[in-house]
Simulated scan of single mutants.
Amino acid sequence: MFKHFWSRSASISMALLYVLLGLVLILFPGLTGTVFCWVLAIAALAYAVSRFWFFYQARKDGFTAAGTLTLGLLLAAFGIFCIARPDVILSFLPLTLGILMLVDGIGKLPLAINGLSLHSPYRFPLLLSALLPLALGIVLIANPFGAAKAVIVFFGVSLLLDGILDLVTAIQTRRAEKSEYKDIR
């Protein structure tokens, strides 16, 4: 299981994606937060438009669909609020990111424990790639309403380090597999 996980190209792709996203978050924290709110607003407004269209079609067919209209209005209000007050939306971002980091760390913990029990040469990068997101997630959850830019940079550093550690582990595992394959031949 251990070798299968790290030999997949998806693991390397995800590690590279983490590194790239981490760099973007570190270099452009204010813009990243604003873009996040714009994307959220666009998604909410697009869904609101679809609810308004559904309401219109339902009314044309003789149905009331008042819940659809209400949902559309709430989503439209939320979309407008995201555009008008991104700072309020971003104040909840640290808690959300903390939960995501905690889930990521918990998800990697069995792999790290497996690496430790097998005395894998990659056990320390594995352990760090599980414990770092766990620790950072706990910190973000403990103090979620700090400055949004600082949290975005903090999350960017976390993603960058997590991606680098995953990448190092994946590369080392691939090298070990190649040398084992050469030894077999």
Rank of each mutant, 00 (worst) to 15 (best):
T173L: 05
K3P: 00
P110E: 04
V35Q: 08
L116N: 02
Q57A: 15
C37V: 06
W38S: 11
A76M: 13
I26W: 07
I99V: 15
I106A: 12
F63H: 14
L71R: 06
A44N: 10
I42C: 06
L118Q: 14
F155S: 14
F78Y: 15
C37Q: 10
K178Q: 14
A43Y: 11
V103P: 02
S9T: 14
G30V: 05
I113W: 06
W53I: 09
F92P: 05
F28I: 10
A46P: 03
V35W: 13
I80R: 02
Y18I: 05
A65W: 06
S91I: 00
S158N: 06
S7Q: 13
L165V: 10
L90Y: 05
A43W: 04
L127D: 05
L16Q: 06
F5S: 01
W6R: 00
P144I: 02
K182N: 08
G33A: 13
A176R: 10
F155K: 03
P144G: 04
D166Y: 08
L17G: 07
L20Y: 12
D61I: 03
L167N: 08
L25T: 06
C82E: 09
I99T: 13
M14Q: 02
F5Y: 07
V35N: 08
H119Q: 13
S129H: 10
G62P: 05
A46T: 13
D104C: 05
G22P: 01
F78S: 15
G137N: 09
L45H: 04
L128R: 04
A43N: 11
A58G: 03
R8T: 13
L159R: 11
L90K: 07
L109C: 05
L75G: 00
G79S: 08
R85K: 13
N143M: 11
R8F: 01
A176P: 01
P29C: 13
L21G: 07
F155P: 00
F2P: 00
I42F: 11
H119V: 09
L127R: 08
I164K: 08
A15F: 01
L31Q: 14
Y122K: 03
S9P: 06
L118T: 09
K178S: 14
Y18K: 08
M101S: 04
T68C: 04
A65V: 09
G67H: 05
F154M: 14
D162L: 12
T173E: 06
L140F: 11
V24I: 15
A130P: 02
T173C: 07
V139K: 12
L95A: 12
L31D: 08
D87S: 14
S129M: 14
S11G: 03
L160P: 02
H119L: 07
A130I: 09
I141R: 01
L128E: 05
S50F: 10
R185E: 11
L90M: 15
A130C: 11
F124K: 04
D183R: 00
L90P: 02
G146K: 12
T96D: 04
F78N: 11
E180P: 02
T32F: 13
L102F: 13
L17Y: 05
L95E: 04
A142P: 07
A46L: 15
L160T: 10
L111C: 03
K182Q: 08
T64A: 14
G72Y: 06
V19I: 15
M1F: 03
L160G: 12
F5T: 00
L27W: 12
G137M: 04
A46Y: 08
I141F: 03
I171V: 15
C37R: 10
K182G: 02
L45W: 05
R123L: 02
L93G: 07
G67P: 00
S11P: 00
D61G: 07
V19P: 01
